[in-house]
């Protein structure tokens, strides 16, 4: 970091590229746009979900197996919950990806944090999706 006059001045070769060439793909553009669109959708989905679950008709105290089974009898609410799960996971995951990109100091740290993030995202999305699609209201003990 410190440069003193004792050190030899090293000049880079003229036109020596110091940055890797641009990858010429639109991934960052699409992920930026996805954040905006999914964010807007999530405002409606999540606030609606919270309203139904916690405020209307006695709120959280009426939630039980039967309540969930009743709601998921309608494909509309299954689709609502499925959308909320996928959008929230991808939105939050992409947000964390940018946080890791910004704050990880070492390339190895960055790589492993991102791997942990992606694995957790895949696990939660798969488990949630599995439950939404295979939920059986008549299941017995």
């Amino acid at each position: 970091m410190a440069t003193t006059t004792d050190q030899q001045l090293v000049l880079a070769r003229p036109r020596a590229p110091r940055r890797p060439a641009a990858r010429r793909n639109n991934f960052e553009l699409y992920s930026w746009m996805f954040m905006r669109i999914s964010g807007m959708a999530l405002v409606i989905l999540v606030l609606g979900h919270l309203l139904i679950m916690n405020i209307l008709d006695g709120g959280v105290h009426r939630i039980n197996w039967g309540f969930v089974a009743g709601r998921w009898a309608s494909p509309f609410w299954r689709l609502w919950d499925l959308l909320m799960l996928w959008l929230a996971q991808l939105h939050g995951g992409n947000g964390l990806r940018t946080v890791i990109n910004d704050y990880a100091r070492k390339d190895a740290t960055r790589f492993w944090l991102k791997m942990a993030l992606y694995v957790s995202m895949v696990l939660i999305v798969s488990l949630g999706t599995l439950v939404i699609f295979t939920f059986d209201p008549n299941i017995t003990n």
Binding site: R19, A22, R23, R24, N26, E28, L29, S31, W32, T98, N101, D102
Partner: peptide
């Protein structure tokens, strides 16, 4: 625009 479309570009 190609240069600024990358991970270190404007989307940061």
């Amino acid at each position: 625009l190609d240069i600024l479309n990358d991970v270190d570009g404007v989307w940061r």
